[in-house]
Nucleic acid binder design. Sequence first.
DNA 1: GTAAAGAGAACGAACATTCTTTTTCTAAGA
DNA 2: TCTTAGAAAAAGAATGTTCGTTCTCTTTAC
Lengths: 202, 202
Amino acid sequence: MARMPKEHLEARRRQILDAARRCFIRNGFHATSMQDVLTEAELSAGAVYRYFKSKDDIIAATAAEALAEVASAFEAEDDARPPDLDNIVDLVLGVERPPLSGSQESAQLLVQVWSEALRSPSLGTKLKEVMTEARGVVGGLVARHQQRGLLPADVPAEHVADVLMALVDGFLVRRAVYGHADSVTFRSGMRALMSAPAQAAR
Amino acid sequence: MARMPKEHLEARRRQILDAARRCFIRNGFHATSMQDVLTEAELSAGAVYRYFKSKDDIIAATAAEALAEVASAFEAEDDARPPDLDNIVDLVLGVERPPLSGSQESAQLLVQVWSEALRSPSLGTKLKEVMTEARGVVGGLVARHQQRGLLPADVPAEHVADVLMALVDGFLVRRAVYGHADSVTFRSGMRALMSAPAQAAR
DNA sequence: GTAAAGAGAACGAACATTCTTTTTCTAAGA
DNA sequence: TCTTAGAAAAAGAATGTTCGTTCTCTTTAC
């Protein structure tokens, strides 16, 4: 019997997933060949197929980790935040570790995941679940702000949450595609928008 | 000599591009095979390759049309808008025909274009050009609003434009991936955000 | 010593593209 | 105006390559 220590087993799996992730970010899921992944991971086909049963399996695992990253960022927003913050912008644009402060590579992978979710029903379902959950978290924060009079209370919190979620997604798009998405600039723009003088309906 | 009327020639080209577009929206650029396109267009390989010299050529043409659609939407914002509008939200979310009121399919294709732009330098460049142009248009509108006192003037217009552009992109993501992105809901949330009471720095 | 782990050749299917053949349509000639 | 030649347009088989995956053999680690 020569079963290797399972820590080594998981290290190999990690090695493959990391290599695949780099390939997928660079070329997308379907323009990346298995040969690309094998070369990047510096492993043979025989080795890789011991850990994943197919390319689709690797894609699914990569996408799942990307979604987990997003989910955990929103969870952190939920409870780790001090309850007395005064500006909702900081909720979404907080510097420490929300989705927005992730790397450009994470943003690029997420764009690939969106694209893949359009053709894979199972990934699409997972994505919707994660984002629905996140919207709930943000909605709760909005509601708390409304209770404190920091936001008008006559608008459903979900409506505001939708806008904030779109801001996050849009920020990710711009960071992924255009490279520089500066959260300081962004926050400044948001503050300007939010301190617009009250307007009469036209 | 038997050269067909060029209107028929362009109709064939359209037929192919329309079919390809449907395929690309459904499966992405690289998970779509030429056979898929041929079947969808109800044409033979020989026919299609008379109008496009390669699959990449079809991809490039499809992406270019998608970008043209976006560009024209922003151009329309620029000059067709009444100059006396009172709410900047309407700039981005206007109902008539800006990018946001496009179909879900257009949004889905745009996600595929973003994804492809990550691996194709030439498409990436074109995309950046179009979006830089659009940002300029939005920036000009923001500046005009600042001049009228509808927005704080102590923040660079570009910062606000960045936020609004991200909103557009985010709206497109949500419409593409989650299906229902209701512009009425969205506008309601935006208005709530923008009429937030002025806040003291914490 | 033995079975797991890995390497790398081998395989069939699917791919984009080209080549050959057939069909279709235009334009010149009777 | 009808015919017909001839080229453009389209079809579909053919081709060579690349793909994902499997199979066999070797190495490694317990």
